[in-house]
């Protein structure tokens, strides 16, 4: 099955592992992710003000391109996913913005939010299914105690993201279990890591990541997986992580490992 794939800038630079393992795994699972042509940076944060439209145009271009190919748009980076999903929602629901965007972009066909945006995890859960995934596992991650860290951007706001229960999500745990790992449950898995505050307010971020990692360690986690490059960066910068008490990786790395395509 073919999907349009939007990587985003971080995946081409600092988060190459997130993408590399995702693509290897997709191939092993028989899913064809076709990178969009001439995609542009989504802007990394969804503009929350109602009067900003220009900063949403890059996302609309990708959404419309996927629509034109008749494919769902697959994302991998949590930040890109939030942007694509929310801008798409805006295009579906905000008539005023839809009109302005279409007037500006002058696409062959006006874009009205027709595309379906799915995150790689949703692809695994809803299109492939964790049961099928479990059958394709070659190297079960037996005995690995992994804590899933969700962050914010995939989960909230719930009505738009429609990803999972924002307070008690299970998709990453279900994913980990399907790979044979033991998913560690801890109450901080949906608490914010501080996100972009690391640019301006490192001291605020420090305590936020500390809470998360301590909670995971208390429940016996030995490693943490995440879907967001910025989450990974913030968690790795923490005191506890620098001391080597826990390691952080992308969920796709574990996937590739279990499918035995890590070195492919």
């Amino acid at each position: 099955m073919n999907y349009s794939y939007y990587p985003g800038c971080t995946l081409k630079t600092k988060a190459q592992n997130l993408e590399k393992f995702a693509l290897h795994s997709a191939q092993a699972l028989g899913v064809n992710l076709v990178e969009q042509e001439e995609w542009q940076c989504c802007g990394a944060v969804y503009p929350l003000s109602t009067d900003e439209i220009a900063t949403k145009l890059a996302s609309v271009r990708s959404l419309a391109a996927a629509r034109d190919k008749g494919e769902s748009l697959v994302t991998l980076c949590a930040a890109c996913h939030q942007l694509m999903k929310r801008v798409n929602h805006d295009m579906q629901t905000k008539e005023d913005m839809r009109e302005k965007v279409n007037n500006y972009l002058q696409l062959d066909d006006n874009y009205q939010g027709e595309s379906k945006v799915i995150h790689y995890l949703e692809l695994l859960r809803d299109e492939i299914g964790f049961e099928t995934l479990a059958q394709k596992v070659k190297v079960p991650l037996k005995g690995r105690k992994v804590a899933a860290y969700y962050g914010c951007l995939l989960l909230r706001p719930k009505e738009i993201m429609n990803f999972d229960d924002p307070e008690r999500p299970t998709v990453l745990e279900d994913f980990l279990e399907s790979l044979g790992a033991s998913a560690i449950h801890y109450p901080y898995k949906t608490e914010c890591c501080g996100g972009y505050l690391s640019v301006d307010k490192e001291e605020v971020v420090e305590q936020m990541v500390d809470n998360i990692i301590r909670s995971a360690l208390e429940q016996g986690a030995e490693e943490i997986v995440t879907a967001c490059p910025l989450c990974k960066y913030n968690l790795e910068n923490s005191r506890l992580c620098s001391k080597g008490e826990i390691s952080i990786s992308y969920f796709t790395e574990l996937l590739a490992e279990a499918l035995d395509v890590k070195e492919a």
Partner: peptide, 19 residues
């Protein structure tokens, strides 16, 4: 000067958008 070698592009772009 603020940047270390690991900081993801996402953080820098977000910073520019927010600040």
């Amino acid at each position: 000067k603020l940047l270390d070698k690991n900081i993801p592009q996402q953080a820098i772009v977000s910073g520019f958008r927010k600040y």
